[in-house]
Design a protein around this nucleic acid. Structure first.
Lengths: 292, 292
DNA sequence: TTATCATATAATCACCCCTTATATCTGTTA
DNA sequence: TAACAGATATAAGGGGTGATTATATGATAA
């Protein structure tokens, strides 16, 4: 490989202009510079690339051979720079988000929608998993970003809380009497309970908190999505443990009511997490800005 | 397009080594040089190509995108240089020779054979034509080289005589009496004559010379190849006008005999001609060396 | 804590490359 | 025929860039 790749760009320009002096103008240099540059290239390649006459220059056969390759190479570099620009303008690329648990989707969805509308070229990939799994996705590079329940303890990750959420209990008309005054958790736990499935992050959080308070639950229903929790509560199948922030619609419409506990479940936080050591991609940064 | 293509080679090396310091060694430079070079590239492209950590570097997504293109481009340049080298070593390429007339083939054949044996990668293309046509082939770039009858008068061509040839008359046993002493041309011209076809260069040369001497011919036979001339003479169909140098085999074997003229036809020259303004290709030069 | 490895930063210096100036050659025009 | 225009080559010099040396910083491992 020759030492100075720049000479190839010079060669390329000379070929396209079929003249040293025109190439010089095109490159904002002087003719002797081209003359010397091409001479140097020829010396390095130990060949003659142009026939020089006082009327101008012509490519030698060697020059023609070389030109084909140089032309391709420079074309490729130009395309590369173009792609890079596209990527920087977020007109291309992808954003992979690890999402804490199904619940987070209720929070994230509008943001995903807005982001997609703003940057239609960016492919969105959503990875579902537990907080622990998300952390691993991020550390292994499978995800650029994670939105999950805090706390997270991992030296390699940086975490930024972005929303407080409150686990509450709700019920339908049938249990309306529970909603008049604050009640003891212990009392509620004896009612038919509606929870998310056991592996769900939210469920584990609540269950662990209750355990610490000396309570154990055995739900009548274990459901797969937050929506179902509310629907089951609405038709009076039991007391559902839901996230207040994601249930505002139902609460405001009055189809379910909150059962206020004397000892409310401490609020949790949802956070954005990403690698400490590596700056976020442009797309990821934009998404985080959107969240704030 | 960025201004310094060299930075791409640096980038390429860094990517392959996954380390600034290793790349530095590989390029026989120091680590700060790489550090600054990549920084400059990043500034020009307005992007970040590597994540830097005290443990080393990692390509960013942008870097990965760019690398694919740079890698291809550099690969292409390397192949180009390789092809160039092959061409220079005459392991590839082609040599196009314009050949004066059919007669020249008898002279050229062994050289073509030898050249082909020496440089099997070079494609040989033979273009047949008259001296004038050859000259045009060369000037139009259709041929690299011409081997034809002299003289040639063309300002754009340079001519180097490479062989003297003599037009002589030969006959078989039947006309043996003509070969004892020198005879007058006028006398020979009355015998049955065997010539090449009228358009043949040699025929025209001889015919014009004879015309200048006040003689006109009307051959009994007009043949398409030099070999046939000799064969016809051998079986006593007449007196053949052949080129001495190309008939040595027949003359030495005694199957035909030369009829020496009192006024012999002046010798001609075969010459190598090529463009004045443009150096010959390496292959052409080698072929000419072979001829000498 | 110390040592090691990786990269970043600062300052200096040498070399390379570009520019200016001039030469040479060719074809064109007055 | 001379002068001119346009192309490239060559010589010499100066400025700028990039590499080097030296030092800093951060992280990891012993």
């Amino acid at each position: 490989m020759i030492t100075k790749l720049d000479l190839y760009r010079m060669f390329h320009t000379v070929c396209k202009n079929e003249s040293f002096s025109k190439a010089a103008k095109s490159l904002y240099m002087t003719q002797p510079a081209i003359s010397q540059g091409i001479a140097q290239l020829e010396k390095e390649l130990e060949t003659t690339l142009f026939y020089r006459t006082p009327r101008g220059i012509t490519l030698t056969k060697e020059g023609q051979i070389l030109y084909d390759y140089v032309h391709s190479a420079i074309g490729i570099l130009e395309v590369g720079e173009e792609k890079l620009l596209e990527f920087q303008n977020l007109t291309t690329g992808e954003l992979r988000i690890g999402v804490g648990d199904t619940i987070s989707r209720y929070y994230l969805l509008p943001y995903l929608e807005a982001f997609y509308k703003r940057y239609p070229g960016i492919k969105l990939k959503i990875l579902n998993g537990t907080t622990l799994e998300i952390a691993n996705f991020i550390k292994s590079g499978e995800a650029d970003l994670g939105i999950c329940n805090l706390p997270i303890q991992d030296d390699h990750l940086q975490v930024e809380p972005c929303k407080d959420v409150h686990d509450i209990f709700v019920c339908g008309d049938k249990y309306a009497n529970l909603t008049k005054d604050k009640v003891e958790a212990k009392f509620v736990m004896k009612m038919p309970l509606i929870f998310l499935e056991k592996k769900a992050n939210s469920r584990q959080y609540v269950e662990q908190y209750l355990r610490e308070q000396g309570m154990h639950i055995s739900p009548e229903f274990e459901l797969g999505s937050h929506d179902l929790l509310l629907e089951f509560a609405k038709i009076n199948l039991g007391i559902a443990c839901v996230i207040k922030e994601f249930s505002m619609d139902y609460l405001e419409r009055g189809v379910v009511r909150e059962i206020e506990l004397i000892e409310p479940i401490p609020k949790r936080q949802i956070g954005i997490c990403s690698l400490k050591s590596v700056p976020m991609s442009r797309a990821a940064k934009r998404f985080v800005e959107l969240l704030r």
